[in-house]
Amino acid sequence: MTPFDYTRASSPAEASRLGREGATFIAGGTNLLDLMKLEIMTPDRLVDISRLELDGIDRTGDGGLRIGAMVRNSDLAADAIVRKHYPMLAKALLAGASGQLRNKATTGGNLLQRTRCYYFYDTAMPCNKREPGSGCQAIGGVTRLHAIFGASEHCIATHPSDMAVALRALDARVEIEGADGAVRNVGLDEFYRLPGDTPHIESILAPGDLITSVILPPPEEGRQTYRKVRDRASYAFALVSVAGRIRMEGGRIARAGFAFGGVAPRPWRDRDFEATLEGNEPSPALFERAADALVANASTHGDNAFKVPLLKRTAQAVLTELTES
């Protein structure tokens, strides 16, 4: 690790101010310290935000849920409201990392964890995300983990979070306090940026922007789940994952909300997939049509071509599970 100054923030405002002056936030530290040990990230000033009182899980006025940025992943997965009304979120959290890591990992840090691309982790290799302009070693290299949607000729990395996939399917919004003290909130779709020609910029956050909470809309009726496919039964990142919820009305799919993990630089959502389902009676043929629509625009890079059939089958399996009587 390269040397740094350490300060513990006593308020969100103080954290934001120090952030604008160039300091890096540390929450659970489980991603940042890993990257600092490898000198992939080399902040010269850390602001400890882990003790800020942003650790509540509270009902909002309209019946939704406000999840503090400092809520630990294990507390969120164990929360009674989350388990009962947003089970896909509990399942996604529990499918990620380990018991020890979830005890440290925070809502905000989980959203901002960085890719697991092997070349991003190997400082001897060119990588546009780690070192803008140096090239992308993954393109033409080993791409088993890489994206089939949303990538660019500059970066084909995926976002590794499980939690964020469920949040995207649940239409979550991220609340941000800026260095000027103004609070705004944005949907997860706008929150993450696609790589384009600036893959080192991963979200809309500006220096000093502090995530203060994540807000879920009121729970919807219907069934929901999270399914993760990986190389081991536990403690491995997703090759492909599906977060899905379905509300039925009179034997037809009235509403479908889906997001896909392990396949894109951000949790992937596809309106064509949902539109194909909505208004129709569930059937294997319908699920196949929806899955075909989903992968219609996939582009593969050698090793990761298996993700196309894997994603289709996983989506079809989840649709079957959510609609069978």
């Binding site: 350490y6 540390i26 530290g29 489980t30 310290l33 020890q100 890591l101 440290k104």
Partner: peptide, 13 residues
């Protein structure tokens, strides 16, 4: 009271 990985956290925290 909670289990954590002591390698991924700073003592000063």
């Amino acid at each position: 009271g909670r289990r954590i990985n002591s390698c991924l956290t700073l003592a000063c925290m």
